[in-house]
Design a protein around this nucleic acid. Structure first.
Lengths: 191, 191, 191, 191
DNA sequence: GATGAATGAGTATTCATTCAT
DNA sequence: AATGAATGAATACTCATTCAT
């Protein structure tokens, strides 16, 4: 959690951290590198974050919050379910692909011993609106009645994999690919 | 690569490494801990693996090979496609869930700077039989004609997510859950 | 090469290194000992020198440069050749005997795998002024016309041996001994 | 000191040690390398030498003894002094140049913390016949009356340097070079 | 005697964190 | 607040020596 008001530096540190993690992996993350990349002195980073763990946890929540918010913006309560589903899926897909590093950071973070129980809970809570939406779909008998975590796994799991392939330049995601994937997703969960 | 013939020690080291990684995360992996857990002296580990990176890469390939082989054993070429698909999916699901640590190790490893290009390629090559099988399904018009990596993402992505939830005790995977998931999978990729 | 400006620390490290090497031999040289002797933390030494090899190479050049400069200061171009020779020989002898450790470090270093080709070349280059001087003596027919490396071997070889004997307290170098040795040196190379 | 009778293995170990030291310096000397080079198992070396220090000390004495003996063979008591001096100098020079590694090993060893007082004394004692010879020369007023260690330094110092240059391929030692050096040597010590 | 796998103390080096300026 | 030099605990790896076969 930032200790100061200089929001610009916080952002610079976040960007630098993300960049270093994506280039070197989580185990290549050195505070000195983050500082240098952010254009700051090593000690300065510690003015904004208590320690490495705090920095990583803060970044995680920052990214997850940003992403979730951006994604839920696509939700219009007046849309019928399938339309809403389509919009949300597409937005989620677009966001993930546009900034794969953010998504991959979040993924990787899950595996790290840096993860705090508190951070994890906060992160999970962010998905609450999505839970609500899907719950609604079940109630309306638009999608299958299976536990929400499974539904979400079914929807997000493939996207994670696609993003990895895309990030590693194993595939090229065209409009038709995207259309196919949406179809697969809908077909798998819809009634 | 082992320098001697004592295969038992190699296995002991593999087991110890996996155990330490799962308990402490990838950045908590210390060679001394591996040695102790394996009941060996530190130096002995280095008789079998040149260094930490080599150990991790070897373990990765070992796990991935084992898993892939175990999983492809479920394949019977005389089965009709849907039966074969069902058996393979179930086997993959069972294996992943039965030994989540192995699967999670493989996943985590991907994000590590320890990953060698060569190892990555070898690991990818293991999936070749699966590619063959799915290709066959496409030819027979049993499943949708979309690029194989996408198909595999669609099938494996959800399983990865489920395993994580299961490992973190967020869900309990019952027979009916498993049945539902198989249905989702088949519905999403079948024609 | 120092990364910062605190020249005092560089000197402290050099002194500590020399002292440790002379007390324990080259294979007793431990970075931790150097740091402690220099009154610094282990890591600090690494702020100033990339690694052990770099430290040793730097010290070698430092000592050789210092010694060569101090010794060539005795050279006065207006002196006639024999006078100049005498002054230089005496200065070299005095310096070597006054600080045998420096000379012995330089000698020992030569046998070490730490020696970098680059360092060796730089060190050799320092003797250039001496080559010039002797070349001049040959031209003026004051000393024998034999290849310079041989001449230098003839002059320095005995001094190295004397310093060793002196350092190991096998002999006591009196004024008359010094006088004798100078005579031997001059007699051997003069025409 | 060898513990067994298999002289051939002792020689193989000596040769291997010498070779490794010359290739990698004294600090690159590893018992495993010696064993491999000698065509033996690591443990076997320890059957012949108590430990590394013992091996090095034994090799030192072996080399120094061999060399001194080979060299003193050139001495014929019936020769007049100058003839004897010439023969001895030439023999010493030839031997040193023919097997520079042996000479350099002896030199390097002096700087090592492995050196045992006892070994040192034994090594020094080997030069006793040479002391006798030079003492005789002083008595007969053939050479200058200065302390024997100084005389020996004056004679051997240059040779050591020449061997180093030769070994490092900095000079080529021709017959005329050798002749010059002998002259320098004689001129410097003779009356 | 011979082997070479096993041992584990020893060491160079790194890097999160602190603190004097 | 900002700096970056300094710290020293932590850790990968080595290698002399031992010992079971």
């Amino acid at each position: 959690m930032p200790r100061s008001k200089d929001e610009a530096k916080v952002i610079a540190i976040f960007d630098a951290t993300l960049s270093v993690v994506m280039k070197t992996g989580f185990n290549g993350l050195k505070m000195a590198d983050v500082a240098k990349k952010a254009g700051l002195a090593t000690g300065t980073v510690y003015l904004y974050f208590k320690n490495k763990e705090a920095l990583i946890n803060a970044l995680y929540l920052h990214l997850k919050t940003e992403k979730t918010q951006a994604f839920m913006l696509a939700y219009n309560p007046t849309d019928d379910f399938k339309t809403a589903f389509t919009k949300l899926w597409q937005r989620y897909f677009d966001i993930s692909l546009a900034e794969p590093e953010r998504m991959l950071f979040i993924e990787q973070f899950t595996y790290t011993s840096y993860l705090t129980r508190k951070t994890k809970e906060k992160g999970d809570a962010l998905l609450y609106p999505l839970f609500e939406f899907l719950q609604e779909g079940i109630r309306k008998r638009k999608i299958k009645n299976i536990p929400l975590p499974l539904l979400i796994s079914q929807l997000m799991g493939p996207i994670f994999e696609i993003v990895k392939l895309h990030y590693n330049k194993k595939i090229k995601v065209t409009t038709s690919v995207k259309k196919s994937l949406l179809e697969l997703a809908w077909k798998s969960v819809s009634r």
